[in-house]
């Protein structure tokens, strides 16, 4: 089949050659794809909008010997809120980078597609970094790497104390006895409780959760380290941090992990 359709999200869009863009598309039916969108950096290109990062659209692709090319593209949703707010752009970038890192071409991930699309829509109104944390935990679960956060991943025992230990090698939290064998990091019990809610709570009610700057940093850093160790690659946008703008995303004070 030389020509095929893909209902897809653009999760990466890189400049390529004189006026082209190399797109990484994430489609419901075919998983991750790469395709060359020719001439889309020229102002008169009709496919310009569909080749932008975070666009959800319908793509008609032509199978090439080395690279597939975009024959036609029509955007369905451009998520303008992801263009107009730095924190939302950064959160969406982190979501897209994690998805790109965690998935491999040729495999189908329909649930991950739905999750990503949902998160892109919810980013319009929800705390972007809360959604980013929830997305990371839920994507890990969809791919079979869900961390055990309610009990010790090693012995199944209860977790106690104000500070809890989490390790990607162990696959989640560890009790004081089991933690000796693993490398990991300490986080507060409140942050661990909030992570459980981010993982298991209803997605459309996530905006009821509140966290403070310390919990935000602790959870996102823990998730970054967990994902990097799980997939053995660095998450560049996660390392950059919202600290790029002083106070950006850091001013959302609230009760710890309450709904």
């Amino acid at each position: 089949m030389a020509v095929y359709h893909a209902d897809a999200l653009v999760i990466r869009s890189r400049e390529y050659g004189e006026s082209d863009r190399l797109l990484t598309l994430f489609s419901r039916e075919m998983g991750k794809l790469q395709a060359l969108a020719k001439g889309v950096r020229k102002p008169k290109s009709r496919q310009r909008a569909a080749a932008q990062l975070f666009t959800y659209g319908e793509y008609l692709l032509h199978r090439g010997r080395t690279l597939d090319t975009v024959n036609e593209a029509s955007p369905k949703e451009s998520f303008p809120h992801l263009w107009n707010d730095y924190d939302r752009t950064l959160a969406a970038t982190r979501v897209a980078e994690l998805l790109d890192m965690a998935t491999i071409p040729g495999q189908i991930y329909p649930e991950a597609f739905t999750l990503t699309l949902t998160v892109f829509f919810l980013l319009e109104h929800f705390d972007p970094y809360l959604l980013q944390g929830a997305y990371a935990l839920r994507l890990l679960r969809l791919l079979g790497y869900a961390p055990r956060l309610g009990e010790c991943s090693e012995c199944g025992g209860a977790l106690c104390g104000p500070r809890l230990f989490i390790s990607s090698a162990a696959g989640g939290a560890l009790c004081l006895t089991c933690r000796e064998q693993y490398a990991g990091r300490w986080i507060s019990a409140g942050s661990m409780a909030l992570m459980r809610q981010l993982l298991n709570g209803e997605m459309r009610k996530l905006d009821r959760l509140r966290w403070n700057a310390m919990m935000q940093q602790e959870i996102l850093e823990t998730l970054r380290a967990y994902c990097e160790e799980t997939f053995e690659r660095k998450l560049k946008s996660w390392q950059m941090g919202s600290a790029a703008v002083e106070g950006g995303g850091q001013d959302r004070d609230g009760k710890e992990g309450s709904t």
């Binding site: 107009n84 707010d85 730095y86």
Partner: peptide, 15 residues
């Protein structure tokens, strides 16, 4: 007028 360009504009505007 790309996502990256807009993000840069917003970042500089905040500064």
């Amino acid at each position: 007028p790309t996502v990256e360009g807009e993000a840069t504009s917003l970042y500089l505007a905040k500064l």
